[in-house]
């Protein structure tokens, strides 16, 4: 069934099924962390998650119908935002902690060992607290994640060729489906019409904070790489270079 013919319920069901499995860092933690060991753990985990993220994106109804260039651009623009929203979701029931994976959980204070990361940890914890206040639901979370992916590149390019225009139109229709799905998910919560409108506004406004933290995180990772604190390789290197060149 094409996504345009799916009910919001079916669409959400498909993106719930696309959710990546829980991922483990599977490293022996030598605490206390050094600046280098913490950065290596964070980047190793990110690299593993990125591979699963590509698989997740391909399972979002309609994503693989976009041009390959659009698929690449969308992923390279939003990958850190997606990782951060996933982190917030895992951490939402653990105030003051960041649950990077079931075997890699950090307190705010543990960020002290990496220069400049406390500021980012605090932003991540603040956004997570906001999701906690809003009692974010799983259905809403999966819609927001798909929205981040599909919205990431919208204001960066303007289509020129017929193929680009076709892909852009498909992308806009796909965003419509995701917005419909989020509206439907909110409508199931037993709120008044006004409360539903406000909730939609509050949830989508949080996306601008996530973009902001992601930009900060990208700058931080680039600095750590430049100073040789951390060795960045494979897919993560490709994504990082894409954002810094």
């Amino acid at each position: 069934v094409h996504h345009s013919a799916m009910s919001p319920e079916e669409f959400i069901s498909r993106i719930m099924e696309a959710e990546p499995p829980e991922i483990y860092l599977m490293e022996d933690m030598n605490k206390p962390f050094t600046e280098s060991s913490m950065m290596m753990s964070l980047t190793n985990l990110a690299d593993k998650e990125l591979v699963l993220m590509i698989s997740w994106a391909k399972k979002i109804p309609g994503f693989v119908e976009l041009s390959l260039a659009d698929q690449i651009h969308l992923l390279k623009c939003c990958w850190l935002e997606i990782l951060m929203l996933g982190l917030m979701w895992r951490s939402v029931d653990h105030p003051g902690k960041l649950i990077f994976s079931p075997d890699f959980k950090l307190n705010r204070e543990e960020g002290q060992c990496v220069e400049g990361i406390m500021e980012i940890f605090d932003m991540l914890l603040a956004a997570t607290s906001r999701f906690r206040e809003l009692k974010l639901q799983r259905e809403e979370y999966v819609c927001l994640k798909a929205m981040i992916l599909l919205n990431s590149y919208l204001c960066t390019n303007s289509p020129e060729t017929a193929e680009e225009l076709e892909s852009r139109n498909k992308l806009l229709r796909l965003l419509d489906s995701v917005i419909d799905a989020l509206v439907w998910a909110i409508s199931k919560l037993g709120l008044t019409t006004q409360q539903q409108t406000l909730r939609l506004g509050h949830l989508t406004m949080l996306l601008s904070h996530i973009r902001h933290v992601s930009n900060k995180g990208m700058d931080h990772l680039s600095t750590m790489k430049r100073k040789n604190v951390v060795l960045v390789y494979d897919l993560l290197l490709e994504m990082l270079d894409a954002n810094t060149t």
Binding site: L52, L68, E238, A242
Partner: peptide, 24 residues
């Protein structure tokens, strides 16, 4: 540099029908 060359791994993962979990 073409998009394909600049994003070799990403391009491969997007085009590959093999589960990325296997590649990881």
């Amino acid at each position: 540099t073409s998009l394909k060359e600049k994003h070799k791994i990403l391009h491969q993962l997007l085009q590959n029908s093999t589960s990325p979990v296997d590649l990881a």
